[in-house]
Design a protein around this nucleic acid. Structure first.
Lengths: 317, 317
DNA sequence: CTGAAAGCGCTAACAC
DNA sequence: GTGTTAGCGCTTTCAG
């Protein structure tokens, strides 16, 4: 167990001198610095991160809270966070929650326990007030949702606006009967989308045209079959992820449903698959969302940031 | 800054007693236990993880080293690891490397610094010998590649065998001229695949039929165009990921190339997209790979484990 | 059952 | 420039 004291002793200097060269502090004579460096190498010494963290009171790492890892949307957010973290010399601790409340609280507990310097929450299931209880003075929490708060930081896409835009685009194209494929009904982002959907005027919507639990391609296939079994069908579906839209589209091909003649599809994300399959999609800049979330964690001051969406017209509307 | 000592003082007991109730140790009288618990709640006290880690010499977390986060293969591995880690009460530290050598070494440095209790390496770029230099007595390193080693642990898919099987399947189907789409040429897994490809007898292969840098759908599109520009074309392509095969397939549709008549495709992964698009694919159980990797990190004893692949015949061969 | 005290390994204020 | 030393907050012998 070779520690800083041993290095100091064998190098014939004090621990503080060793600490200074370790941390690149000034005021160390060149010859001492050199002998310390040599001793470190000779003893094959490495700092103990936990001791450093304890002493410094921070860990240079940030926790990322997300429900699933195998969904492109979260993969991209994570990638964006990772890119910025790498630049800033931060590391990521992952809290994959499956929207399980205790698993999510775990991440917040880690914050209080000073295991992470801050938290980026890509999506959550716990109540905001509950979560606020875990706040620690200067340890930022960034949420990827539209939020007004003194204490929390928020990077988001205006899903209310994006949904409104989707609907007005469909309306312009002459569609009236509109259905929806959505991940879940709870959660700020989903609620914003739902609200926009329900409040929009001049279209026909029905509860049985709203399909929830749509995450993967398979869900898209399932929804198309359900759509076929409907007595009264919507003419078009707004789909909150490209993966699901891809499932819908390909199942439609198999079942002889013409897109967009029988059913139009307007999707969100604009990931490569939508371009590949010619799916009209509204880009949600998830990678940028991740990047921005990390920057917001790092920088003091900014507490709120909106990212813009872009419509890509292709062949499914 | 409410710490264990303060809790002890206000509860009127010693720090060790507080520590005992904190850690659920036996031999604490019920009334003391209760008063400690109450004081903890009253003072809104939380343990400092870094102090615990320092004192215990372990962090209950494992580092995961992988090149990219937005590739389904790695997403699934990560998901598998996360599932098992959750069960075991471990946390994940992410080291996303982009196959950048220093970024990868960072993870190994963290191991030496006792920031993680072990490492799971999904894919690496550094030399094995170099990495071994970072080994710490009892801190396991699990690599997702075929490896014989006393010190390292290995969970893998036999890519040599899987490739051989792919080729013999194609051969049975009457194909002779075979090309290859592969991620990269270096790396144990890729080398195993390449070796199987080169050593296989009775088929025609050419260097210009080997396409590297194939990760995403877009790469598949690109490769199809390159294939079209070839004077002499292979009749079939073995593709090391469904995403890339999907790109090839859809670009083929756009360019009027018939699959499998003009070009057959045999892919790896068997992720949902291959089922969706009817791509013949050899299942690589990446989720299980992740799960198994974590178990191997945790359990003493087992040092080597192979996972089997399964062929799913569909419409592209 | 309980407490005192010796670490765990490092940082940084302070004195020289 | 350099060394001494008091923390950082917790765990865990060891003695009682």
């Amino acid at each position: 167990m070779t520690n800083i004291r041993k290095v100091a002793e064998t190098a014939g200097v004090s621990v503080s001198t060793v600490s200074r060269v370790l941390n690149g502090h000034p005021y160390v004579r060149e010859d001492k610095r050199r002998i310390v460096l040599e001793t470190i190498k000779a003893l094959n010494y490495t700092q103990n991160a936990n001791a450093v963290h304890l002493s410094r009171g921070k860990t240079n790492s940030v926790g990322v809270v997300l429900p699933y890892l195998n969904l492109p949307y979260y993969g991209e957010i994570l990638q964006g966070i990772a890119e910025e973290a790498l630049k800033a010399g931060y590391h990521l601790r992952l809290y994959q929650t499956n929207y399980d409340s205790p698993a999510e609280l775990d991440a917040f507990a880690a914050l209080r326990m000073k295991e992470v310097d801050g938290l980026i929450v890509a999506s959550r299931t716990n109540d905001l007030e509950e979560l606020k209880g875990f706040m620690e003075g200067d340890r930022p929490i960034v949420l990827c949702e539209n939020l007004e708060s003194e204490s929390l930081r928020s990077v988001y896409i205006d899903h209310y606006q994006a949904m409104g835009r989707a609907l007005s685009y469909l309306q312009e194209k002459g569609y009236r009967k509109i259905g929806l494929c959505i991940h879940r009904l709870s959660g700020k982002n989903s609620e914003d989308r739902m609200r926009a959907f329900r409040e929009y005027r001049g279209i026909e919507i029905r509860n049985e045209w709203i399909f929830t639990g749509c995450y993967h391609m398979e869900d898209g296939c399932r929804v198309l079959r359900e759509w076929m079994n409907l007595k009264e069908r919507p003419e078009t579906l707004v789909v909150t992820s490209d993966q699901v839209a891809a499932g819908l589209l390909s199942e439609a091909g198999r079942r002889g449903v013409s897109i967009p003649q029988d059913l139009a599809l307007l999707s969100f994300d604009n990931h490569p698959i939508s371009e590949l399959m010619g799916i009209t999609s509204i880009e949600v800049p998830s990678r940028s969302l991740g990047r921005e979330a990390f920057r917001m964690f790092l920088e003091e001051g900014r507490h709120r940031s909106v990212l813009q969406t872009t419509l890509f017209e292709r062949d499914t509307v």
